[in-house]
């Protein structure tokens, strides 16, 4: 089982990113669950959501304690939350950032999701859309296939620019 924890702030689309990722994994023929950990529904508060992907039906409902991968949609969350908590040794970290940040003992990647969204003017209620470009980045990292990622995005969004930003993130991803 592959377990991913997504850190974001309320309103940034972390929950939708988890849902998109799970849907894409299902299109890959796998089993997946996406679970938000809700606090009070408050814009701007740090939140986490979880994705589990496996070849067998998933029977675990409790929170992910030892993720294989951590995704940070808002780097400012790292000031207040230990995003590496429980991350398995050798686990992957993906941060939405222009600069690469090293995390000792982990494989770190970065991509400027915000910049990609702004370039396409993909902004809702003042927030650049991060949940669709991040799926492109995750496809690059091999979490889901590119085709399934696109399929999932098209099922959940009618605006084709969401696919464009995912493709852009896929290309721009640091190796």
């Amino acid at each position: 089982m592959f377990e991913i924890r997504i850190h974001s702030r309320g309103g940034q689309g972390g929950v939708t990113a988890a849902r998109l990722l799970a849907l894409a994994a299902i299109h890959d023929g796998k089993y997946a669950t996406a679970a938000p950990f809700y606090g009070a529904e408050r814009r701007g508060a740090p939140i986490v959501s979880f994705v589990r992907i496996d070849d067998k039906p998933i029977r675990v409902y409790s929170q992910i304690k030892k993720p294989d991968m951590v995704v940070v949609l808002d780097a400012s969350v790292m000031d207040v939350v230990d995003v590496l908590q429980g991350l398995k040794s050798g686990g992957k970290v993906l941060v939405n950032s222009q600069q690469k940040k090293e995390f000792g003992g982990y494989l770190s990647s970065n991509v400027d999701l915000t910049g990609i969204a702004l370039k396409e003017k993909l902004v809702v209620s003042g927030n650049p859309i991060l949940n669709t470009p991040v799926i492109g980045a995750l496809a690059k990292m091999g979490v889901v296939s590119v085709d399934s990622a696109k399929k999932a995005i098209r099922e959940m969004f009618s605006d084709e620019r969401n696919v464009t930003v995912a493709e852009a993130a896929y290309k721009e991803m640091s190796a």
Binding site: A22, I26, A32, T33, A34, A35, P36, Y38, Y61
Partner: peptide, 8 residues
Amino acid sequence: LLSHIMQP
């Protein structure tokens, strides 16, 4: 746990 989780 179930009301808000996404599954196939």
